[in-house]
Design a protein around this nucleic acid. Structure first.
Length: 595
RNA sequence: GCGCCCUUAGCUCAGUUGGAUAGAGCAACAGCCUUCUAAGCUGUGGGUCAUUGGUUCGAAUCCAAUAGGGCGCGCCA
């Protein structure tokens, strides 16, 4: 675990504050923060301590701030502490303190920024969770990346994270998949039945007509020959084939989905089957638990306002009293055929996650599931007596555009629909990084040309370029000083007091803000902050680099000044490490050079 | 009709959970640049934080109402 500058000095602030204003409650002290300043004129850090303390002390903030500043001025490493504005205290640190940040980074390596804030709380992050009825689609892509990076982030922040995928393999959709696969199987064994005839035979009609099921039908034919059909390749009764074909198709679909996700760099630790949760009786147990709490009843729902479904009719059904937990209406658990609704099974699944030890549940869902959130939260609240929180991250739609024009998702027109096509076109790193350049709950345009453009305004490129430049300097430094001189271990012992230029200190300040960025982003469940921090860090590094163009004295490698060179190499190595630490959370590969 | 999310510079977006004079990039304008790694650099202009009210030392941030955009609204997942 790396020590965080801000945490360290915050304890000094609290110590001083306790002396000046005794008897402050813990909850008030918790609101005291020490943050980076927005402007250089305000020093390195600022605290709101005097503003917080003013009320309980019944004193003016400026007064307390002045006393606090006087006390903090004597703290080791502080050159200046000044009251400012409505009652802030600004701290200016000795350059040596900022310089030591480079050493912390080199000592910690990519573990720099690791935090214990999560206190090993068991968090289950469920994401992607698409139907296993076809290849994974670009529509799932944002949730996949957001979920994965959130999980990485929380892991880095000290949570005990499980990455989980829920396989929706129990509903009508997989039944339709089984029928469609069977159709392809019949074709593979030479049956002449056409789509229309089979469509008429299939409950709910033949839904999945995509070519991706052809090889699966063929594989079934190879294994089972004609055994799954009646004579002449005529369709047999479902009893003869349905369960087998369904399981086979789902398994094959999941193989493909797993493979595609792996190309995106997403690997879940746990896959949970809806059918298995159901078969194991967890779902029944969950429903029983709700019943025991008196939260189920037979009732008739009001028809929905606005557009009415064509076949709507009032009907008594088993309802969960979700309104008791903040939902708008009570929700049905059984379909008219007696089977569970998706919601009912999902209640079972969430109980399953809790029974496996999760203390916090996080679902990453598409925005079209927004209407589902309050009922699921209600169910989890009811099941766990509000002991296990369910948090939901909604990801808004991504519009794929090329050159500002929307890309229509049409298979017939040959424009891509699958995640794999997107990855083939722009690459994994561009997809992952770009998906996090917006808050999850904001809509986003994904421009196929812009995300691979090698320009300043492409954050993926800009961050990669910064790392490549760092590596380039380190390679040149190796030429100049020898390999042993610039290992992280060797650089740990290099004097850093030459790093005093404003651009160098600004870079160090940014690097120093990584631990608190990790904690803040993890606690707020906002993985996009990592992408923005990386962009800021890259900008600071490029600024320093560019300054060296005009002022040769600021260049990293100085032929005649070994001490200055070593200090700067340490800074560059620390910067590269910080970038890698951030990219590791993003699941993006750092590059050694741009090509 | 109801619920949830969103509205910040001409454009695309941040804004560290209520802090100081609201910030980047693009575009515009003005200079510079032939390079330690090239895909540029420096500077300038640009704002009623959708609108109105409220909460308090202090609001883009919290609350209420209004306007506009998105999503959802029994047995799809």
């Amino acid at each position: 675990m790396s020590d965080c500058l801000f945490q360290r000095y915050r304890t000094h602030v609290l110590d001083a504050l306790r002396r000046i204003v005794p008897d402050m409650g813990e909850e008030l002290l918790a609101r005291v923060e020490l943050t980076p300043t927005r402007e250089a004129a305000h020093g390195d850090m600022a605290t709101n301590a005097a503003l917080i303390a003013a009320k309980p002390a019944r004193r003016k903030p400026a007064e307390i701030a002045a006393e606090l500043a006087a006390a903090l001025e004597s703290v080791e490493g502080v050159t200046k502490a000044a009251a400012a504005g409505p009652g802030f205290v600004n701290l200016t640190l000795k350059p040596a303190v900022l310089q030591s940040v480079a050493r912390s980074v080199l000592a910690a390596g990519e573990a720099y920024g690791d935090s214990r804030a999560g206190a090993d709380v068991k968090v289950n992050v469920e994401y992607v969770s698409c139907n296993p009825t076809g290849p994974i689609h670009v529509g799932h892509c944002r949730g996949a990346v957001v979920g994965d990076v959130l999980a990485n982030l929380m892991d880095k922040a000290g949570f005990d994270v499980t990455k989980e995928f829920y396989i929706n393999d129990a509903g009508a959709q997989v039944a339709a998949l089984a029928w469609a696969t069977y159709w392809r199987y019949l074709q593979a064994i030479g049956s002449t039945i056409d789509a229309e005839a089979f469509d008429a035979l299939t409950p709910g009609g033949l839904q999945y007509r995509g070519e991706y099921l052809i090889p699966i039908g063929q594989a079934l034919a190879e294994t089972h020959g004609t055994a799954l059909a009646d004579e002449g390749g005529r369709p047999a009764k479902p009893e003869k084939w349905f369960a087998l074909v369904k399981d086979f198709a789902v398994a094959r679909m999941m193989d493909g989905i797993r493979e595609d996700l792996k190309l995106l760099g997403v690997e879940h630790g746990v896959f949970t089957s809806e059918a298995k949760v159901l078969a194991d009786g967890v779902t029944d147990r969950a429903i029983k638990a709700l019943e025991d709490k008196g939260l189920l009843y037979e009732g008739v729902l009001e028809p929905p306002k606005g557009k009415l479904p064509d076949d709507w009719e009032a009907r008594p059904q088993t309802l969960f009293r979700s309104t008791a937990f903040g939902d708008d209406v009570d929700r049905p658990l059984r379909k008219s055929d007696g089977s569970n609704t998706y919601f009912a099974n999902d209640i079972g699944y969430h109980l399953d996650k809790v029974e496996r030890g999760a203390q916090v549940l996080i679902d990453v869902l598409g925005a079209d599931h927004g209407g589902y959130v309050s009922r699921m939260k209600a169910a989890v609240k009811a099941l766990t007596d509000a002991k296990v929180p369910l948090e939901v991250l909604l990801c808004q739609i991504v519009h794929i555009v090329r050159d500002g024009q929307p890309v229509r998702m049409s298979k017939r027109a040959g424009t891509f629909v699958t995640l794999r096509d997107l990855l083939d076109e722009v690459g994994r790193d561009a997809v992952r990084f770009t998906m996090l350049t917006r808050k999850s709950d904001a809509q986003m345009e994904f421009d196929l040309d812009a995300v691979v453009a090698q320009t300043r305004d492409n954050p993926v490129f800009y961050v990669q370029y910064a790392h490549a430049r760092c590596r380039s300097v380190l390679r040149a430094a190796e030429e100049m000083l020898g390999k042993e001189a610039i290992t992280p271990e060797a650089l740990l012992n290099v004097p850093l007091d030459g790093l005093e230029a404003d651009v160098e200190l600004a870079l160090l300040r940014r690097v120093a803000s990584w631990p608190r960025t990790v904690e803040g982003a993890a606690l707020a469940r906002e993985p996009h902050r990592i992408a923005f921090w990386l962009g800021d860090l890259a900008a600071d590094f490029h600024t320093l680099w560019n300054r060296g163009r005009d002022e040769t004295s600021l260049r990293f490698l100085q032929e005649n000044d070994r001490a200055a060179t070593l200090a700067r190499v340490a800074l560059v190595a620390a910067t590269a490490t910080a970038i890698r630490s951030g990219l590791a959370v993003m699941g993006v590969e750092p590059v050694e050079e741009m090509r």
